[in-house]
Nucleic acid binder design. Sequence first.
DNA 1: TGAAATGTTGGGGCG
DNA 2: ACGCCCCAACATTTC
Length: 473
Amino acid sequence: MSTSLLWFRRDLRLDDQPALDAALARGSRVVPVYVESGAGRWAEGAASRWWRHHSLAALSEALAERGSRLLLRRGDPQTVMATLVRETGAVEIHTNRLAEPPGCAGADSDQLAGVPVRLHGGNLLNPPELPRNRSGGPYRVFTPYYQRVLGELNPAPRPAPTALPAVPGDLDSLRLDQLGLLPRQDWARGLAARWTPGESGAQARLERVVDSILAAYPEGRDRPAEDATSCLSPHLHFGEISPARVMLELQAAVMAQRDTRQAAGARELVRQLIWREFAHHVLLHFPHTCEQPFDPRFGQFPWREDPVTLAAWQRGETGIPMVDAGMRELWHTGFMHNRVRMIAASLLTKSAGIHWLHGARWFWDTLVDADLASNSLNWQWVAGCGVDAAPFFRIFNPVTQSRRFDPAGVYLRRWLPELSPLPNALIHAPWEKPALVQDRGVVLGRDYPRPVLDLAVSRNRALAAWKRLLQKA
DNA sequence: TGAAATGTTGGGGCG
DNA sequence: ACGCCCCAACATTTC
């Protein structure tokens, strides 16, 4: 009877788990293992580590319930696997592809410790190198990519096995707390209040999305005060739910046709899921884009070194309420509403002219859904230097956006309680009428910062810099 | 998944 | 009745 190692990486689930299914299909003994390895490029940030701690706890429990056991080991995967192969006599390693660039935690290899690594496709709907456009190259524009893969997707997720083979008791495992994933200081209470990491948390959220969020999703997803987005991103990042499972549930909602609004919401969410696929497609074919602009002209762009503004942005103290609310939501919950991410990112890269990598690195450290492919693609999209990017001159006005998408100031007051005495007419841009603001007991510069930049001035500066770049190129 | 400037149109007030 | 102006609403262009 042969033995396989089931190497969990960011596929921390048992449902629709192709690596698990394949290991079992060999009719062999299956030894599940998680390897805590060293840093490397884009070492996981603190919020992600918090999430992973809890996700591993849930996975460990789910395996135990089915008669198996999760081994936790620490070290270089090559070394750890060599030890495990010696201890178990394993002939294969099964895991799901991550397809990140070399040197990153999610880089794949097809052999470790002299044993073949069988790479499965449970993390994505499509193998990330596919599809190819008519000239045989990768896609660089979302819409044709979307239309192409939409017609080809036919997910067939498989349910979790109800029982698993036992793991020999003499195999050592670290305790979860020995991985040291939790922060020393307990700043994570906000995260714990907001999230339920782990497979059952992911499934519960998907159920709620289908039952009560989908119908209003197309318009609701832009209003940050509402619970109207899927919030599946961290669950998907850690593989607590498979994209094929999400897809199937959404397709079922479309098929049911009870509610055409629900079907429209499902289609829109499928589109978002395919943005995730597209990000992986792009990072696989253009692996330098996690650090370098996709559009080479931007190698010459005069980004400003401005540590003071960067720090104000990070702390949520720019004096621009919609931006500060988003940055504080991020700090407290490890998440930021998608619309607000675009606004905050536009302010940093375009209004402040600060390099998108500074923003990408901050998000990387603070987001529970930090994902190299999505983070890189989206930061470059906002900055205007990426694949299918927003043109550089598309600069968000955070005040206009705030008035449009949070007209009643509900989101602003939630994250900026110091502004809650202000009426809706003043809360979106308090610096415009400082005297009226002061009448309400809010003193700018004391209770809430004055804006770190002038939106009109910074807009013109950004446009001028872009124009000069075009002339050079 | 923009914003601001500029252009156009049409209704109403008014001499 | 008519032309004129104003301005809001909408469309188009430019960045």
